[in-house]
């Protein structure tokens, strides 16, 4: 479910040159062409969709390195939100 949504947002906002279907969950998104502009647009979309806010310590390359990494970060933030 989360995976599908993340993929959808990545397709919509990530401006990747490659087709997303061919991309594994652990594939390097930067190698696939994710730019800093694309990652910011994607982050804004994730914040909006999941009603979370990325704290500054997650604003680095690692967080957006792969689809799994994004999922893990968003899952963590959603968990924190629901616990609060």
């Amino acid at each position: 479910m989360m995976n599908k949504q993340v993929r959808q947002l990545l397709a919509q906002y990530g401006s990747l040159p490659a087709a997303l279907e061919d991309l594994g969950n652990d594939a390097d998104l930067y190698a696939a062409g994710l730019s800093s502009h694309g990652s910011v647009q994607l982050m804004l979309a994730l914040e909006d969709t999941f009603d979370v806010e990325f704290p500054d310590n997650l604003l680095n390359r690692k967080t957006f390195a792969s689809i799994s990494a994004i999922e893990a970060a968003v899952n963590g933030l959603v968990g924190e939100r629901d616990a609060a």
């Binding site: 990747l16 040159p17 490659a18 930067y30 190698a31 696939a32 062409g33 994710l34 730019s35």
Partner: peptide, 10 residues
């Protein structure tokens, strides 16, 4: 670019 098929940012 890293190879002939690589994206422009790779």
């Amino acid at each position: 670019r890293a190879h002939a098929e690589a994206a422009s940012t790779d």
